[in-house]
């Protein structure tokens, strides 16, 4: 059956570019306009920080590893000394990026969707607003080769610019939002750590970890 759209359903919305309203020549010009040789850092990473990488390790192993809260002890640059705060998955650790900085976090994963999200916050654990979104995709599906592709996204939550929990922050400690312009760089370094660990263990047939005492 040839499913048709209802007349007037979308055509009247201003600003839509669809083949009916925007011919290929106009669309071509628009594409050329939008395509630049270089993009300012701020334009790409100003409000969102998306990064991605190929990892030569099967998706289910990557998921198993990333969904274990203690893996963050291994591949993050500065999250250390974890303890479970409650029975429902809330953890407390130290973020050694800041002097004497508590970081609370919770791992929310979905095995079917292969998503592993880290919900975090500095200084308090009631409002985990700093959210690291990760999606693992079978590389076989998107790259026609074994392994995984990881998409890691952060959004510039309003609290990066204004800390509403200043009363809980150690005096004089810089705020995490001050480092937003380094998030792309910092996260790329950490993603490289993750890749190195997973590929080494997978290629050497070692348990995937994390390796806890």
């Amino acid at each position: 059956m040839n499913q048709m759209l209802i007349p007037g359903g979308v055509e009247t919305l201003p600003g839509l570019k669809r083949v009916e309203s925007t011919n290929k020549q106009v669309m071509g010009g628009l594409m050329a306009d939008i395509t630049h040789a270089v993009y300012p850092h701020d334009q790409i990473y100003g409000d969102y920080c998306p990064i991605q990488s190929y990892i030569n390790c099967p998706p289910e192993k990557v998921f198993e590893y990333m969904s274990n809260p203690y893996c963050l002890l291994e591949w993050t640059y500065s999250m250390r000394k974890f303890e479970a705060v409650s029975g429902d998955g809330l953890f407390l650790g130290k973020d050694r990026i800041g002097d004497n900085t508590d970081i609370y976090f919770r791992v929310k994963s979905n095995k079917d969707a292969l998503t592993v999200d880290y919900h975090c916050a500095w200084d308090q654990g009631d409002d985990l607003w700093m959210i690291y979104l990760n999606r693992i995709v079978p590389a076989e599906m998107v790259l026609k080769k074994p392994g995984s592709v990881i998409f890691w996204q952060n959004c510039r939550h309003a609290y990066y610019d204004n800390n509403p929990y200043q009363d809980k922050a150690p005096k004089g400690r810089p705020w995490v939002g001050q480092f937003w312009d380094f998030f792309y760089a910092g996260h790329m370094v950490e993603l490289e750590n993750l890749k190195t660990i997973l590929e080494y263990r997978h290629l050497n047939n070692l348990p995937i970890g994390p390796y806890l005492n």
């Binding site: 300012p40 850092h41 701020d42 810089p174 001050q178 480092f179 937003w180 312009d181 380094f182």
Partner: peptide
């Protein structure tokens, strides 16, 4: 150093 990220971000943006 804690302001370095912000200042680099500002300079990268404003001069171009």
């Amino acid at each position: 150093e804690n302001k370095a990220a912000m200042i680099i971000g500002r300079g990268n943006k404003t001069v171009p």
